[in-house]
């Protein structure tokens, strides 16, 4: 057997015939040193400590003292009305934003994929929110939601409706956040769908048209099924990202989680607890709960997807 190195592109991890000495490790180690240092301190260590801290009772991080080890924090979490409320709010947010933005993005992506003129202008318009700071744009939305002088109420009145207390009413505030959330999610999702769409071979469409299929049929029987891996991916990414909603709330309500704490989300809970109230272990527990829920949801999602996509 001869190795045609000149043609091969793939490099073996270690060639089984080479002796592995201490030197084999020294060189990579030098290159990896910055990575190892940063990742250990700011990624591995936090993962471990957040996990451990969530079990510490009466943890004082400044003095580094704690009284015990147990599930005390977790039970405190779930009996805390605020946390449960935060969970609910987060779920409502995710449950509204993800489906709506996914469907809208899909529609937009399909339309944009039709190779029309003015693609660059459309691209600029539809993707702009993606590169701009949520916190800044959120403040603009806040202004648009203004009861007296906001754009949105203006349009509602033009259309004959009554102005809404977007910023003041706890329920309408939720709607305001959701609308803004959807708007902000669209660009990234559209891009993902567009790249997914572009992987679908023209041939399928041509074959379907030859078979006499109308556009509606093509859409539902060809495009969407072929796009299902992308759709699954989009759902996962969006669920993960929307469950972490924070910047949007902060921007819209100037650091407060909505009128009457109506927009108190889990990340807000975490933030308040460890930054303002120094309840580090509670915050850790909450973070873990959030992570666990999201993780489970994505697992569930992948399981469902496997059965659906393979059809």
């Amino acid at each position: 057997m001869s190795m045609t190195l000149t043609q091969g592109k793939r490099l073996a991890k270690t060639r089984s015939d080479e002796r592995i000495t201490a030197r084999t490790f020294i060189e990579p180690l030098i290159y990896l040193l910055p990575f190892i240092v940063v990742v250990s301190v700011f990624m591995v260590y936090p993962i471990i400590t957040v996990f451990l801290n969530s079990f510490l009772e009466d943890y004082n991080y400044l003095a580094n003292t704690y009284s015990g080890f147990g599930l005390g924090n977790y039970s405190a979490l779930f009996s805390d009305k605020e946390f449960v409320g935060a969970l609910q709010n987060t779920f409502i947010y995710v449950g509204c934003v993800v489906p709506i933005s996914t469907v809208l993005s899909l529609a937009i992506a399909i339309l944009l994929n039709k190779k029309l003129r003015g693609t660059s202008i459309f691209q600029f318009a539809y993707f702009l929110p993606m590169v701009t700071a949520t916190i800044a744009v959120g403040i603009v939305w806040k202004w648009m939601y203004h009861y007296d002088y906001g754009l949105i109420n203006y349009f509602i009145q033009v259309l004959g409706g009554e102005p809404v207390h977007w910023m003041e009413d706890p329920i309408m505030a939720k709607a305001a956040l959701i609308i803004y959330g959807i708007w902000g999610k669209l660009p990234f999702t559209v891009i993902l769908f567009l790249s997914g769409l572009q992987t679908i071979d023209e041939q399928y469409y041509t074959a379907a048209k030859v078979d006499g299929a109308g556009s509606k049929k093509i859409l539902f029987r060809i495009t969407i099924p072929l796009l299902s891996p992308t759709i699954a991916l989009v759902l996962i990414i969006n669920i993960i990202n929307t469950s972490k909603v924070f910047n949007e709330v902060f921007a819209l309500f100037n650091g407060k989680p909505g009128p009457g704490y109506s927009l108190y989300t889990v990340v807000y809970y975490i933030y308040e607890n460890f930054y303002h109230e120094m309840n580090v272990s509670i915050a850790c527990a909450a973070a873990l709960v959030l992570f666990a829920i999201v993780f489970l949801m994505t697992l569930l999602q992948t399981a469902v997807q496997k059965r659906w996509v393979s059809r």
Binding site: M1, S2, M3, T4, L5, T6, D17, E18
Partner: peptide, 20 residues
């Protein structure tokens, strides 16, 4: 012919492959 070891031998001479 291919697989006879000629390239391997060349790579041993060049040092790209170490000898056993």
């Amino acid at each position: 012919p291919s697989g006879c070891g000629k390239s391997t031998m060349l790579n041993l001479i060049s040092g790209i492959l170490p000898v056993t």
